[in-house]
């Protein structure tokens, strides 16, 4: 039995004539300790898929099973890192993390809460900024707070919805390493949603492309059999990396072309030539 199982998931928004099917026939199995990445175009329904797994949304039909139990609502067992950090701007870094700790371990003392929060803030190396407000932090630092908050609840599985999407390339690489480091320590099950194929290959054990919506569905999976810890520079020279990368990109490109050729309407451009201003004023 898989750790997380999605069986024949369909999700539609709206009703009657305006009903659109966002996800159709999604089937996914994730084993314990696995790191899976789902790669897809923007607007292909990635966030909907994430919200189905973390319990913020319910599928129209089909079932989401977590450890064999159907998912009904959110749970502390599945930690979520949102795309836009979603920190509470009126709370400091520590208070943001403390809020999660208190909810996950309601029957501890205040000192224990504080120690736990400090531990996770230290894990993402934000101890110097512990009393700062989110607006005083850079994007990368904010996302690290979000990581600390998600981890501090000791989830069995961690779900990341384009966590690094809004960051610059350098910060991104840095945070990828940090997340991998933390993941490597206790090998939690992880699901990463991303639009960056390289990021998926660098971080995940398996990559599954999400074919673009409406009616988004999962494509064939690509196994990444690179040894961990992975090294970015070495990776770029590895044959297996190049092959996988090309295969995935080709697959995504094909989908893109497919979609383009589906657009049948042809637009005829009017036969115009620009006026010759240069010679006119000479």
């Amino acid at each position: 039995m898989a750790y997380l199982e999605l069986n024949n998931i369909y999700k539609t928004y709206g009703q009657g004539d305006s009903e659109t099917e966002v996800l159709s026939n999604i089937n996914l199995k994730i084993e314990e300790g696995e790191f899976v990445a789902i790669v897809g175009f923007t607007g292909s329904g990635k966030t909907t898929l994430v919200n189905l797994i973390n319990g913020l949304l319910k599928p129209t039909s089909g079932e989401v099973l977590f450890k064999g139990q159907p998912v009904s609502g959110t749970s502390h067992e599945r930690g979520v890192i949102f795309q836009n950090y979603s920190l509470l701007p009126w709370l400091t870094v520590e208070q943001n993390v403390l809020m999660a700790v208190k909810e996950a371990f309601p029957k501890r003392e205040k000192a224990v809460w504080k120690r736990k929060a400090a531990h996770y803030i230290d894990m993402v190396s934000l101890t110097p900024a512990i009393n700062k407000l989110p607006k005083e932090l850079s994007g990368g630092m904010r996302q690290r707070v979000a990581v600390a908050r998600a981890l501090s609840m000791k989830p069995d599985m961690i779900i990341m919805d384009e966590p690094l999407g809004a960051l610059d390339a350098l910060t991104r690489g840095n945070l990828q390493d940090q997340i991998l480091n933390i993941w490597g320590k206790d090998k939690r099950t992880a699901l990463l949603i991303t639009n960056d194929v390289d990021e998926g290959i660098y971080m995940a054990d398996r990559i599954i492309p999400l074919r673009p919506g409406p009616n988004a569905t999962l494509g064939p999976e690509f196994k990444i059999d690179l040894d961990r810890p992975r090294d970015k520079t070495e990776m770029n020279d590895s044959e297996s990396f190049k092959k996988t990368r090309n295969a995935i990109i080709e697959y995504l490109m094909d989908i893109g072309n497919e979609r383009k050729s589906e657009a049948k309407e042809e637009f005829i451009l009017p036969d115009l030539t620009p006026k010759d201003f240069v010679n006119q004023f000479r």
Partner: peptide
């Protein structure tokens, strides 16, 4: 987003309103 955070952290109704 804040409501989603409250849901994911599973805050109680009272906590959700005040925090």
């Amino acid at each position: 987003d804040y409501i989603n955070v409250a849901k994911v952290l599973k805050l109680g109704t009272f906590q959700k309103i005040f925090k």
